[in-house]
Design a protein around this nucleic acid. Structure first.
Lengths: 149, 149
DNA sequence: TATTGATATATGTTTAAACATCCATATAGT
DNA sequence: ACTATATGGATGTTTAAACATATATCAATA
């Protein structure tokens, strides 16, 4: 379904308005799907984002600030996102010995398990969700890179 | 800057994971810019979305349900978004005579004025923000349409 | 017309985002 | 060493999103 039909708007002012609207609409669509996907696992997509970052470092530690710099949403409220993950025993936090301001964050075994369960399903789900050939997916990705300037 | 650098992740599992992440990242980037843009006007981008829909009907009326079906974010909490716009005198709501459940929403003169002020600036801002040629913008838009299946 | 199911909206509650402010510590320059 | 500034993080408050449920009305039909 074209964006015109999705939001019942027959015309756009120009190609830039159209692509801006389509981009936000499509990302919202994807995020809704992801949200549904993550619900049975008891986490949100931001929380998944953090877990994935931490797994990339495992068994290393990483600071909150470093997590922030790697997040998809750079405005994330990291302290409170971390609190929620700690409450679920998916990550743990210890004071950093080198920098007393900072904390060392590490993913727990339980966190790794949850993540592995998710991975098992996420690949297939992404491929069937995104109705593009591999080449088109790469092309779309590179247009997105370019679009940000 | 490529998505790999933006989120400091050197590789992705496959083209679909990459494009999904890039899409959400890029939409977030755009939404942040829009948010900054709208701030001086005292509205959010969802509120702008509603105003634009209402102007499209002006001087006609439209129901909340109809607004919802045209929103970019289909999960919007319409009643409360409308409340906020009413409080700012940008729209007004009257009971619908044909259907006593529904309300007739209409944009006010003040709402139209705010919208016109915004339009004056938004076009240029979108064109300089989105670093694509017109052709690339259309191509990106059509890949987004296709991607949703 | 009485009933069933759908529709339009409102509202309560929980959770998270947005924004500002604050504190401790680290770093750089003098 | 001392001061200014930057950084990492916590926390308070306001606002909005998410989710469920409630209420009134409508439309179809038995």
């Amino acid at each position: 379904m074209k964006i015109e039909e999705e939001i019942k708007q027959s015309a756009f002012k120009n190609a830039y308005q159209k692509v801006a609207i389509n981009l936000i609409y499509t990302a919202g669509w994807l995020q809704n799907k992801q949200q549904e996907f993550f619900k049975p696992f008891g986490i949100t997509s931001s929380q998944f984002n953090i877990l994935r970052i931490l797994r990339g470092q495992h068994p290393g530690k990483i600071s909150g600030a470093e997590i922030k710099s790697r997040m998809l949403d750079k405005n994330s409220d990291i302290p409170r996102l971390l609190d929620r993950l700690i409450k679920k025993n998916l990550i743990s936090k210890t004071p950093c010995p080198n920098d007393k301001r900072a904390a060392d964050i590490i993913i727990t075994e339980e966190g790794l398990q949850v993540l592995n369960q998710i991975d098992f399903q996420i690949d297939e789900s992404e491929k069937t969700l995104i109705q593009l050939s591999k080449e088109e997916a790469l092309q779309l990705s590179s247009l997105l890179d370019k679009c940000r300037g």
